[in-house]
Amino acid sequence: MGAIERIGAATIGRVRGLLYALGFMVDVFKQTFRFVTRRKVGSRVLTMQVLFTGVEALSVVATISLSLGAVIVIQGLSLLPQFGQGQLIFDVLIIVITRELGPLLTAVIVTARSGTAISTELGNMVISHEIEAYVVTGINPIRHIVAPRFIGVTLSTLLLNLYFNIFGLLGSFVVTQFVNPIPLGEYLNGMLASLSLTDVVSSVVKSIVFGAIIALIATYHGLQVERATTEIPVAAIRSVSHGITMLIIANAIITLVYYI
């Protein structure tokens, strides 16, 4: 078999895989819509998903964002006044926390915690025929299993990003009090004057897109498991590596769009 054939076969395989994944995505969106409009049964799954993905990750997110805010303030306050641009500290904080690292770090935390968990859980469900049990009972597994996870992860990522911002921006205030005390009112004024609605919207859009990416990739790889339990860790690893790659690409695209 020649190289050309191999390349051809690989390309066809790739395109098929991509189309399949796209079909999966469309189906998830469709079923999520149905889940929302006809939600009655799966709300418990959604609640638990937000509990696991959102509430339980709050401490990690808070710790990271507080320390990140602190580091930015300390570095910023030692560097920026040298150029007479001390006021820029708020812009730096907002760019780093609100626009860039807030959504991205939150998404990475969610991928690491919940992306793997979802892939593993769904993989196990496939192995133990639970998915088939849903299918045969006439319960659409995309709607009953994937949709609440999709909503839960997206919502949790968004909420965690909001908390990340709150902790990061307020945490930096606490640190400022040690380095260069300024009154809360002045701090808030400076912060609010620098914070634009576009920053907030960009941050929110990013975290929603990231949450959707994490959920789609995690559920996709989880359901890709077919028979063997050995496929489960592979699915988990794929969901993390694939997920983080996609997050970074999406982040670049959104930032680009934002600046254009």
Partner: peptide, 24 residues
């Protein structure tokens, strides 16, 4: 279609070899 399939499934029952109960 999705709806039709769902209705069809609802008219079927299936007992798996392993129990396939929903663990959660």
């Amino acid at each position: 279609g999705d709806r039709e399939l769902e209705r069809l499934r609802a008219r079927n029952g299936f007992v798996f070899q392993d129990d396939a109960l929903w663990q959660n």
